[in-house]
């Protein structure tokens, strides 16, 4: 367990995708087997610097996501360490079968990076939203699913992924994310959630992933001011989910609230509910996007509409703790 971080508006707001590019470039200078692939998406992926600095380790496949993933698998099978970038909406559905067969089933070391995930593309509409990616990718045997929360955790996650030989799907958003952690203080252990709480006797636990972790921490701070103690679980490892962390907070808290930028079906909320229901039933409230095309607007406007913000999370905790 770690103390709830003091949240600052750092001004140094870079999107998590840029943290991925920076980390991969550092690795690629040392290791020629690190390869980046894009499907006419290097700008969206913040990977233009990588493509410029390491042209011999960059592969452009054009607008062809199926080909993108299969080519990555072929590269991996011949000893390369491909990082495969495409908007999460296309990567997780257009090339789903390639992820299933060529990556997971054939057991190739392909890291699929879904950029501009969730409702990052805002008003571009449902074609560009990926509110199903956690569910579909998690349902593939041998596929891991990660949603890092801020740039510091993203860096640690990519460094950990660079050391292993298995495929994974990583989803990051398009927009800059305010820091939760700092360079000096970013607790990270692969496949172990980060539990953030100021004391052991919390009333509620908020389990969140990806860019929902920051508002979850803000909500916990607001609740503390109102005399309610809440823990936050940063479940960046959605699969394999940290079951032990879920059970730890379930044994303590009276209420669990899950928060995710995803469909209400098959994502973090479903997984947490499954664990809690089987072992030690307690009330679990799932906050998620609706099972419908979302309202037109920026991602912030979308979050505000559906209560996926600090106020919405804190309000939910208060309402259901009564």
């Amino acid at each position: 367990m770690h103390k709830l971080p003091e949240l600052k508006t750092t001004g140094n707001r870079i999107p998590n995708r840029q943290a991925i590019c920076d980390t991969l470039m550092t690795a690629a200078y040392q290791d020629r087997s690190v390869i980046a692939l894009c499907s006419d998406s290097r700008g969206s992926a913040s990977m233009t610097p990588f493509f410029s600095a390491c042209p011999g380790q960059s592969v452009e496949v054009g607008i062809a996501e199926q080909n993108l993933v299969s080519i990555s698998a072929g590269l991996a099978k011949c000893g390369k360490r491909p990082y495969t970038f495409s908007p999460a909406c296309f990567l997780s559905t257009r090339s789903y079968e390639q992820a299933k067969i060529d990556c997971a089933y054939s057991d190739t070391n392909v890291k699929l990076i879904g950029i501009s995930g969730g409702v990052s593309y805002g008003a571009l509409g449902m074609s560009h939203h990926s509110a199903q990616d956690i569910a579909v990718m998690s349902a593939i045997p041998n596929m891991r699913v990660y949603l890092p929360s801020d740039r510091h955790q993203t860096k640690k996650l990519i460094e950990a992924l660079l050391k292993d030989e298995k495929c994974a799907y990583v989803r990051v958003g398009r927009n800059p994310v305010e820091d939760i952690y700092s360079e000096e203080n970013c607790p990270f252990e692969m496949d172990r959630a980060v539990i953030l709480a100021d004391d052991d006797n919390y009333d509620a636990a908020i389990i969140a992933c990806g860019e929902m972790v920051r508002p979850a921490v803000e909500a916990a701070r607001q609740l503390k001011a109102d005399g309610i103690s809440a823990a936050v679980v940063d479940m960046f490892c959605v699969k394999p989910i940290d079951r032990e962390a879920v059970l730890t907070v379930t044994s303590q808290a009276k209420l669990l609230v899950t928060v995710e930028e995803h469909s209400p079906f098959g994502g973090l909320g479903s997984m947490v509910s499954q664990i809690v229901a089987a072992v030690c039933p307690k009330r679990v409230i799932n906050l998620a996007l609706p099972d419908a095309p979302v309202i037109t607007g920026s991602s912030k406007e979308v979050f505000d509409t559906y209560g996926l913000n600090a106020e919405g999370i804190a309000g939910t905790v208060k309402r259901f703790l009564k």
Partner: peptide, 23 residues
């Protein structure tokens, strides 16, 4: 490689051939 669903082999082989060119 595992196969069975059609249309995968050639794109995978493109990746293998690209790796060969790189090396």
């Amino acid at each position: 490689m595992n196969s069975g669903s059609l249309g995968h082999g050639l794109p995978v082989c493109v990746g293998m051939a690209l790796a060969g060119k790189m090396d």
